[in-house]
């Protein structure tokens, strides 16, 4: 009787250890499940979707229209990060229409590769880093 119990326990132990070994083997393959996964990065411009008044609504609408239908089809031409359109939107929102528009014109006039000013380079985009001050 004791011998039978012992055999049963040994078989059970071997069975469990075998399952463990097999699942370990499968996990070595599953480690690479995301090896060729693609990561699409789509800008959603959430900051432009929060509006407080009608003026902001108009500017946000224009900005989102430009980003969705015009800028999305454009070849990469802006040398700055954030881009001139995002900069323009942010500065108008922060400094008001008059100062914001002047600031945007200034930014647009500097948006070329031969600008004499020196800028930091944004590590991810490798573009000139010039945020709204």
């Amino acid at each position: 009787m004791i011998l039978r119990k012992a055999i049963f326990i040994i078989i059970l132990f071997l069975g469990i250890s075998n399952v463990c070994v097999v699942s370990q083997e499968a996990s070595a393959y599953k480690e690479f499940a995301t090896q060729f996964e693609t990561h699409k990065h789509k800008e959603t411009y959430e900051f432009a979707k929060k509006v407080n008044n009608e003026v902001e609504l108009v500017f946000s609408g224009l900005f989102l229209f430009y980003k969705s239908f015009l800028s999305s089809q454009d070849a990469i031409s802006c040398v700055f990060y954030p881009s001139c359109s995002v900069y323009g939107y942010q500065t108008v929102k922060k400094n008001g229409i008059i100062i914001g528009m002047l600031d945007t014109f200034d930014r647009l006039s500097r948006c070329h590769a031969m600008s004499p000013e020196e800028y930091d380079v944004h590590p991810e985009t490798r573009l000139f880093y010039d945020p709204v001050k």
């Binding site: 097999v22 699942s23 499968a26 393959y29 599953k30 690479f32 499940a33 060729f36 996964e37 693609t38």
Partner: peptide, 23 residues
């Protein structure tokens, strides 16, 4: 991007087949 998605789909199926033989 689309081609990379297609290839990933194929790879996932291949991996599924391989893993199914391991457990």
């Amino acid at each position: 991007e689309k081609r990379a998605e297609n290839r990933n789909e194929v790879y996932e199926k291949v991996l599924q087949e391989i893993v199914s033989t391991k457990n």
